[in-house]
């Protein structure tokens, strides 16, 4: 009808199957979402409506780690950062939540990729976890660098180690686990050591800026997944704007995954 295509997002009623802390303020929630599980692609996200808390008007945008298409289930991992996520963490098993998805564009992993480097920091590990599983399912060799502020906030590294053929390297800002410092340290070392044909990064903007700059210097395609506060998730409110070399884009509809070479980092 002569307009851009609307979002693929649809409203689903989800049942909470599991809900528990996994590492300090990092929680996981497993949801039965029916058909939505088969629609989600690695790097896409959902917007969760938290009920029973008057102060939460907008939905919470969350990434997923994995889907179980046969069971119609998805797993979301998130950090409790405010009233909305705190309310979500108190959600009881068996209750229902409104979920809007699939939202956004996920990672673009070419079929002929041979070796991929995945780099995460903090809750950036969530979409990187999903990307890793997507690479493994296609038989692509992967190395993963997982960064966290401290040992008590690390999760998912054992699961990643059991999946990937390459290395899983851990870093913590305080040195309480793995290498001391940001994930950019081991990531830059790996970029110098090994030949990659794709780099995927999600985490704090300085991490994405530093790692993507080196990848671009080396001529390796690099994608970053950006986090923004957002009110709708489907292109209506203009709150999740991303500065790119092609002008302002929206993280919800044009991203959250962008080619790193197009992003103007702040």
């Amino acid at each position: 009808m002569g307009a851009p295509a609307p979002s693929t997002g649809r409203l689903f009623e989800a049942r909470v199957v599991e809900s528990e802390p996994v590492a300090g303020v990092i929680h996981r929630i497993a949801l039965e979402v029916g058909e939505l599980a088969s629609l989600l692609r690695a790097g896409q996200f959902v917007n969760v409506a938290v009920r029973g808390e008057a102060r939460q008007l907008t939905r919470i945008p969350l990434s997923f780690t994995q889907t179980d298409v046969a069971a119609g289930a998805i797993e979301l991992v998130y950090e409790v950062v405010g009233p909305g996520t705190a309310c979500l963490a108190r959600t009881e098993v068996g209750s229902t939540l409104g979920v809007l998805g699939p939202l956004g564009n996920g990672w673009s992993i070419p079929d002929d990729a041979r070796r991929v480097l995945l780099v995460s920091g903090g809750t950036g590990t969530v979409p990187i976890f999903a990307a890793t599983l997507a690479c493994v399912a296609r038989g692509i060799a992967t190395d993963v660098v997982v960064g966290a502020r401290t040992k008590g906030l690390l999760w998912g590294t054992d699961a990643l180690s059991s999946q990937v053929s390459g290395s899983v390297i851990v870093s913590t800002d305080d040195g309480s686990a793995g290498e001391k410092g940001f994930a950019s340290g081991p990531a830059l070392a790996l970029l110098d050591e090994r030949a990659y044909d794709l780099v995927l990064v999600c985490g704090p903007e300085p991490l994405m800026r530093v790692v993507s700059a080196r990848a671009i210097d080396l001529g390796i395609p690099c994608q970053v997944s950006l986090e923004r506060t957002m009110a709708c998730g489907f292109g209506a409110c203009s709150t999740c704007a991303v500065k790119t070399i092609h002008g302002m884009k929206g993280a919800c509809m044009d991203g959250p995954v962008f080619p790193a070479s197009e992003v103007v980092f702040s």
Binding site: R55, P83, M230, A231, A241
Partner: peptide, 30 residues
């Protein structure tokens, strides 16, 4: 959405936050 004669880039991030009973925004008419 409000439109001007020429395109506007709008304000910097972050542009919205939840508040009790609603939300607050600073989109700046992008």
């Amino acid at each position: 959405k409000g439109c001007a004669a020429e395109p506007w880039a709008g304000n910097d991030q972050p542009r919205m936050a939840d508040v009790y009973g609603g939300m607050i925004n600073s989109v700046g008419l992008q």
